[in-house]
């Protein structure tokens, strides 16, 4: 975070959640930076930020932290609850601990980095955002994902990429199982370049791109066909 002298400290033990969110949302472009103390698992913290605000949250957050984020850079120094960075449009959300279920659900853009693990359904219905998880992801991750990338440096749980559309998944570790219509695909140079760029943005430029495998849609289930009934 930028220079200590300019940092505005907001303490959720002293101010209520709505007041803190209004301060964060009211910041002009480039406003802040802010440090938020004692989040105490509060829901919907730092939601709906629309400027390039920098926010550092000292502790664990509740549901939907940094939801609908646009342009802001939000760091959670701790664990994040369900739906962190859900419906993010742009900007960056960084979680130093673990994230719960449905991280970056329906995100249209921006980057979510999780230093630890995520629970189930990471990147569900992703619409163009990028996600880098340095640990493992839970079951049904990237369910129905339409566009964007998920990079997993650890392992992926059951039914990875179930009913996936044109999103891409890169996994370095083991995949417990692939979901319906999700298959392993060739790593071409364009994918290696994308992956390298994502790893660099997530601060792990030293990770070997060659150790990852790529998964995506087999494009068999885009349109309903009765002979595919067993696959759903």
């Amino acid at each position: 975070m930028a220079g200590g002298a300019n940092v505005t400290v907001l303490d959720l033990e002293k101010e209520d959640l709505r007041a803190v969110n209004q301060r964060l949302q009211g910041a002009d472009a480039g406003g802040g930076p802010f440090r938020v103390l004692h989040p105490r698992g509060a829901h919907a913290l730092a939601c709906g930020l629309t400027a390039g605000t920098e926010v550092e949250i000292e502790g664990h957050t509740g549901y939907y932290c940094a939801g609908m984020n646009e342009a802001a850079r939000v760091t959670v120094k701790g664990n994040a609850g369900v739906g962190v960075a859900e419906n993010m449009m742009s900007g960056e959300v960084w979680v130093t601990g673990d994230a719960s279920q449905s991280a970056a659900a329906t995100a249209h853009g921006g980057l979510l980095v999780v230093e630890g693990n995520t629970a189930a359904r990471c990147g569900i219905s992703l619409k163009g955002g990028d996600i880098v998880v340095k640990g493992n992801v839970g079951h049904m991750s990237m369910f129905l994902a339409q566009a964007g990338n998920l990079v997993v440096l650890g392992d992926a749980g059951e039914s990875l990429g179930d009913s996936i559309y044109e999103a891409r998944i890169y996994v370095r570790g083991k995949v417990a199982s692939l979901g319906a219509d999700c298959i392993e695909k060739d790593m071409r140079e364009e994918h290696r370049a994308d992956l390298r760029a994502l790893l660099e943005r997530a601060g792990c430029a030293d990770a070997d791109v060659g150790a990852f495998r790529r998964y995506g849609s087999a494009r068999e289930l885009y349109h309903f066909k009765s002979e595919n009934l067993d696959s759903y």
Partner: peptide, 22 residues
Amino acid sequence: SEYRALVGLPGIERAKVWEPEP
């Protein structure tokens, strides 16, 4: 059910906090 239920416990800042696996 949620982390916020635990925030008043003594020493929670240093506790191992995790989501139980399915």
